[in-house]
Computed example of a mutant assay.
Amino acid sequence: MSSTAALIATLKAELKAAGLTYADLARELRMAESSIKRMFAKGDMPLTRIDEIARVLKTDFAELARRVADAQPLRRELSDEQERAVVADRKLLLVAICCLSQWSFEQIVSSYTINEAETVKCLAKLDRLGIIELKALNRYRLRVAKTLRWRPNGPVMRYFREHVVGDYFSGGFDGDGEMLTLVHGQIGSGLAESFNQRLARIAQDFAQQHVADQKLPPEHKRPYTIVVGMRSWLFSVFRDLKR
């Protein structure tokens, strides 16, 4: 959706929320209702007209712009350039992961040996990268989806393969709330996407539960990491035995 179309859609939503019809708006602006309808249908209105509509809505252009931004769909994947910037700095990567987990500024500073100035610097860089929108008092809004998908062969996944995968799978997976299951089989190729969607829902459920449990005291929570993957694959030590 273009910026203009998004603004028109926001104005329509604000009019509806305020209980105002096109006829009501026409009376306030001293215009014909047909002109109002035509203006919204074509999406063609000068800034002065937008300011007048904002006045009727008891708001201003800055607030409308914020609402347009809030209504935009969140990114589900970053560019290669954005990912390279994130993994180039270990502390920036850590703060990025904390932001994706919706940690507060205070949680980050109290949990890791990154001082306030360093954390602010990282948040400001994430804002410039378009990953968050940094607000007053070091608060922020995510500009990416909570279930952001790192590029399959991008900089972040390469970093994790090199530095994280071995550490993750070296555990016994025998602790409280842990499990490791390896299932191999052959299924109809058309069913693979169905399983992928179900696995994605599990990841989404976990992400939503994480957000819901943010209010719990620290002593009632433990950090967990789910790794979800599915691929057409045969273990390398068996490949030479394949007929």
Rank of each mutant, 00 (worst) to 15 (best):
E83F: 14
R84V: 11
R84M: 10
A85D: 10
A85C: 12
A85V: 10
V86S: 04
V86N: 01
V86M: 07
V86A: 02
V87E: 06
V87R: 02
V87S: 01
V87A: 04
V87K: 02
A88N: 03
A88I: 03
D89N: 13
D89C: 09
D89V: 06
L93I: 07
L93H: 03
L93F: 06
V95K: 13
A96D: 13
I97Y: 14
I97Q: 15
C98A: 11
C99T: 05
L100I: 10
Q102Y: 11
F105W: 10
F105C: 11
F105S: 12
Q107N: 13
Q107Y: 00
I108A: 04
V109P: 01
V109K: 04
S110W: 03
S110C: 14
T113Q: 13
I114F: 01
N115K: 07
A117W: 03
A117Y: 05
E118P: 00
E118Y: 03
T119D: 09
T119I: 10
K121Q: 10
C122R: 10
L123R: 06
A124Y: 02
A124D: 05
K125I: 05
K125T: 06
L126S: 06
L126K: 02
D127C: 11
R128Q: 14
L129T: 12
L129P: 09
G130S: 00
I132M: 08
E133P: 06
L134F: 01
L134A: 01
K135G: 09
K135C: 03
K135N: 12
K135F: 04
A136S: 00
L137G: 11
R139Q: 15
R139T: 15
R139D: 14
Y140S: 09
Y140N: 01
R141P: 00
L142I: 11
R143T: 07
R143V: 04
V144A: 03
A145H: 04
A145S: 15
A145E: 04
A145Q: 14
K146Y: 03
T147F: 05
T147Y: 12
L148V: 00
L148N: 05
L148T: 08
L148Y: 01
W150P: 10
W150H: 08
R151A: 08
P152R: 03
P152G: 09
P152A: 15
P152W: 03
P152M: 02
P152C: 01
N153G: 13
G154D: 15
G154Q: 08
G154L: 14
P155R: 06
P155I: 15
V156S: 04
V156R: 08
V156Q: 08
V156D: 07
R158S: 14
